[in-house]
Design a protein around this nucleic acid. Sequence first.
DNA 1: AAGAACGCACGTTCAGTAGC
DNA 2: GCTACTGAACGTGCGTTCTT
Length: 331
Amino acid sequence: TDLDSVRQELEEFIPHVKNISDCSVKKMAGRDLMRFKEFKKQGIAVKFGRFTQKENKQIRKNVEEFLSLTGIDSAEKLLYPSRYPNEKDTIYRLKTEHHFCEKISEGIPRPWRLIYYRARKIFDPNNYKGKYSKEEKEKLKKYQALHGNDWKKISELMSRSTLSLAMKFSEIKSPINYGSWTKEETRKLMNAVEEVLRKRARTENPGSVFSLEESSRDLWIEREKLYQPLPWSEIETKVGSRYWGQCKQKWSSILTSKLTRGQELHRSTNVLRTNINLIKRLYETKAEDASEVNWDELSNAIGGIPRAYVQTRFYKLKVSFVPLWKRRTFS
DNA sequence: AAGAACGCACGTTCAGTAGC
DNA sequence: GCTACTGAACGTGCGTTCTT
């Protein structure tokens, strides 16, 4: 059928396209396929992951240019027309007339849907408001009880973005513990991770040594596999008293201490050596943007240290030794 | 049908604090 | 003055559904 051929064409640009739903493939069929082909002609590959500084700049430029082209007077009006009931019809008309979608995604080799989302985040004045205060958290709970998941309404009441509110609420909706983990909690977490890994091993090697009564047996897993992504919401449920992000963080710290035991990373000479190594390797990768760094590869090269550990290490180095790091480019 | 919006799961980066 | 630990904001990527 038509969809199958589109899928085949897209595969060249998005290797994992076979796992994507018909619904989403359809959305990429029209505009994106054409755009990807154009980029290919110029020798530009489709990008994934974090937007680079360059790309963010390009989005700002595209938005600005579209505004001056159409005479719409703010990015918010352009990207959130429904917030301006009186003007929204005109805005919609101007957008279709001047090919909003093409213009906004110009020069950025990604599906336009993702570019559009990115633009909306950048230009939502209710975004980037920093930490939630205690009062805000209480308010959020109260308003949610009152209005349900009507984030738009709650957003108007609290001047936070709908995305931020929905995310925050999912974190605080059920009571969780804070502070140090108890022994009991830690044990629960380790059990949950083990259970998940067992299940994974079972589906990966069906009918092998794992098949019978494996629950009582020790589980052997290659080192690299320990860094693979885990189903955190499932683990959150099993732990019960902690949010998924807390579980992930805790697991990472357990992993770090277990895998670096004996290496005595804390000894000052080793710290120095690891830091120098990290900087050197990072330099050698010639990455032009933080999003281009392959942390898995890097942490392996440094000596089988967990990825998350290397990432925070790099962050610490950056903030303590690079003056004005916030205003600098990665390269 | 295009565009906009909602919802979920998980990844990355920034940041505060306890404790040595 | 440093690391380890903890917390959380911010971000991507998709499935899906509502609106225009």
